[in-house]
Amino acid sequence: MSEHADTNAPLDGNSAAGLLHELFAVDLTSANVTCVGCGTVAEIGRERAYGGAMGVVLRCVHCEAVVLRMVRTPAGCWLEMLGARNLFVPAVEG
């Protein structure tokens, strides 16, 4: 990780780990999400991430459909997961 510009070039879903941790008590980047659009199952860390410190849009690594949107505002935090059929959080290894 390092500083990067807020451009249209996507990063990896892994970059949204800190933001997601504000809502989820477990690390979500190693969780598998199933895309409603195409059925692809991928770790959140592998999806395409658009956005910055204030919010993120995660798109399916295969079909680019939006699987998760999260935005932080001064009033609170929005999470939308219409594009995710389910989320599988694996047990800890070791």
Partner: peptide, 8 residues
Amino acid sequence: RGPIGGYF
């Protein structure tokens, strides 16, 4: 704050 991320 951290550590963050369990994927990479």
